[in-house]
């Protein structure tokens, strides 16, 4: 009876499994197949010629990929530095104020990313909130703060801050007070406690936060378009152009596959180094 029951359970799970396969794997498979099709076709009824991958190599698309990865790496590093003290405070110091801070940060997510970025556009532009005020007060302005790489980085850091902050706070909360106290008792300096106790024990939180922000930043587009004034072209921008104005679905698919492969490899390498179960609280 137990065996029949298990088989029935499997059968009942089939529809959900089919939906999951259809919703997650099928679109990826479609993109993967499209990426092998000849240039500018809109169906699968052609022999694969992998020409899009050749186009990517020949036409310098690697530059956009490098820009996206470089910006994502830098934004992730900046977020780690910015969020560590904040997350530390949330996990150890702020007490009830942590809730207020959490609500404030989460509330920002309720507003569309584009609207928030446009708010910054109005703040940073020439004649905007900052330059306009300075000019009114001191009679001298400057050339605005937009349309450059730092502006894109600022946008990435601003938009993806919550995705680093919360996993990091969770990671820091996992460091047992006893371990820290024991280290101090044994004569460890503040720096030693930080590098040898806190960082390794909070590693799952650091890794999850870093992966989230890195993956999201690598695929980001609005920051470079709006705040960066397309000072650099990111890979997501090229993918969008390939699918729309170029009407070249195979090229767009191939660019997506390259991005998925690069980011996927980095994520898998990263995940192999941490125990995700630890941060989920299953094994402590």
């Amino acid at each position: 009876m137990e065996r029949i029951d298990r088989r029935l359970g499997l059968l009942f799970a089939l529809p959900v499994s089919a939906i999951l396969a259809g919703a997650f794997l099928a679109p990826l498979l479609v993109v993967a197949i499209f990426s092998t099709m000849p240039q500018k076709v809109f169906d699968f009824l052609h022999w694969p010629d992998f020409s899009s991958y050749r186009v990517i190599l020949e036409q310098g698309y690697w530059r956009s990929i490098l820009w996206s990865l470089g910006l994502a790496f830098t934004a992730t590093a900046l977020l780690l530095v910015i969020c560590w003290p904040l997350a530390y405070g949330m996990a150890r110091v702020f007490g009830r104020f942590t809730l207020v801070l959490t609500v404030l940060v989460v509330m920002s997510l309720f507003v569309s990313e584009n609207i928030r970025l446009f708010g910054w556009f109005l703040t940073l532009m020439k004649g905007g909130l900052i330059e306009g005020h300075l000019r009114a007060w001191f009679g001298q302005g400057f050339e605005g703060l937009l349309f450059n790489v730092p502006a894109i980085l600022f946008g990435l850091v601003y938009v993806y801050l919550p995705f680093m902050l919360f996993p990091l706070a969770q990671g820091i909360a996992m460091v047992p007070d006893d371990a820290r106290a024991a280290a101090f008792d044994l004569g460890a300096s503040r720096w030693q406690v930080f590098t040898q106790i806190e960082l390794p024990l909070a590693a799952p939180g650091i890794m999850v936060g870093s992966l989230l922000t890195f993956v999201l930043s690598a695929g980001a587009i609005a920051e470079a378009k709006l705040l960066g004034g397309r000072a650099v072209i990111v890979i997501a921008d090229d993918i969008e152009t390939a699918f729309t104005f170029a009407q070249n679905w195979p090229l767009g698919s191939a660019l997506s596959m390259v991005l998925i492969a690069v980011v996927g490899t980095l994520v898998i390498l990263g995940l192999r180094r941490v125990d995700l179960d630890a941060i989920m609280g299953r094994r402590r």
Binding site: F121, G127, L146, F147, K225, L226, G229, R230
Partner: peptide, 19 residues
């Protein structure tokens, strides 16, 4: 070019504020 953007509002603002 000084600014490249696909957003017409951003472009009009840059024009109006003298950028």
């Amino acid at each position: 070019s000084k600014v490249r953007s696909g957003d017409l509002v951003a472009m009009n603002i840059a024009l109006i504020n003298g950028e």
